[in-house]
Simulated assay, not measured.
Amino acid sequence: MDENPRRKTILMCPPDHFGVAYVINPWMEGQTARTDPSEARKQWLALKALIEPLAEVAVLAPQPALPDLVFTANAGFAIDRQVVVSRFRCPERRGEEPFFRAFFAARGFDVIDPPDDLHFEGAGDALHDAARDLIWVGHGFRSHEDIAPFLEARFSTRAVSLALADPRFYHLDTCLCPLPGGYLMYFPGAFDPASRARIEAIVPEGKRIRVEAADAEAFCCNAVALDGTVILNQASPALQERLREAGLTPLLTPLTQFIKAGGAAKCLTLEIQ
């Protein structure tokens, strides 16, 4: 047994230029120019401080005029030094692409582009379930349905396609989170019936942690799971107890400034190794 397992590395980007400057999802409605830069930095630093004892943190330099660069989950999807980089559906975010690409290239990743005709928004819509060695892949709002077979072929790993049905949960990582021990936290209301059935066919009932709408709307599924710790913006007492019953430790840290733009803990991070 390896007594010194390699620590995971998480990519983050400071919120120096973060704010709601446009509207590309329902959470942004009415929030233009209403974020508090000081509070956003405080919340980001608190999240980083919770992650640092559990993983290495790599930092991407923030860039002017790219307020959503802070959401590094959308940089790409990486496994074993290979990364499929994002091709954003929304023009407002396409300026982020060269900075993410340069970061991965500088660190020696095999950088792979999605097919020219397919939008793909990285680990916002592609989540590796290590317990099952599969990739959950969301589509319907940002990423193209055909990205799942592309990822399956590139990574030689089964990809399970899930259709998102609620525009509030426009990325898969806002409504589904693979957890240690083979558990899966998800909000059933975010998926179409066929996708809910697909989840239930793959994940045994005892391993499924269904969340209620109020928890989902507080971005509980947009969580960072490291070892036995689950870091998230908020969770009801019932959900916290369910996580503890699964042998997991929930850590709550407010990320309300970032929710104004449609993201929380998971959106602000990307596991890159």
Results as ranks from 00 to 15, higher is better:
134 L>A: 10
47 L>A: 12
33 A>D: 15
124 G>T: 00
123 A>W: 12
53 P>I: 01
35 T>I: 13
97 E>F: 10
83 V>N: 00
73 A>S: 02
119 H>R: 10
85 V>Q: 02
47 L>Y: 13
26 P>A: 13
38 S>T: 14
63 Q>M: 10
144 H>M: 08
55 A>N: 07
143 S>F: 09
94 R>G: 03
33 A>G: 13
92 E>D: 05
102 A>R: 05
144 H>V: 06
68 D>E: 06
18 F>M: 11
120 F>L: 05
82 Q>E: 00
54 L>T: 00
24 I>E: 11
115 P>S: 12
66 L>C: 01
76 G>M: 04
49 A>H: 06
137 V>D: 03
21 A>W: 11
22 Y>A: 15
144 H>Y: 08
95 G>T: 02
44 W>D: 11
108 G>Y: 07
124 G>D: 05
22 Y>S: 15
80 D>R: 03
142 R>D: 05
67 P>C: 05
37 P>K: 13
114 P>K: 03
78 A>Y: 00
29 E>S: 12
127 L>R: 03
132 R>Q: 11
110 D>G: 08
89 R>A: 03
136 W>N: 07
103 F>K: 01
97 E>D: 06
75 A>I: 00
48 K>R: 15
41 R>A: 13
65 A>P: 01
46 A>Y: 06
116 D>N: 08
17 H>Q: 13
117 D>G: 06
24 I>S: 15
112 I>E: 09
125 D>S: 11
119 H>W: 11
88 F>R: 02
136 W>Q: 06
26 P>E: 10
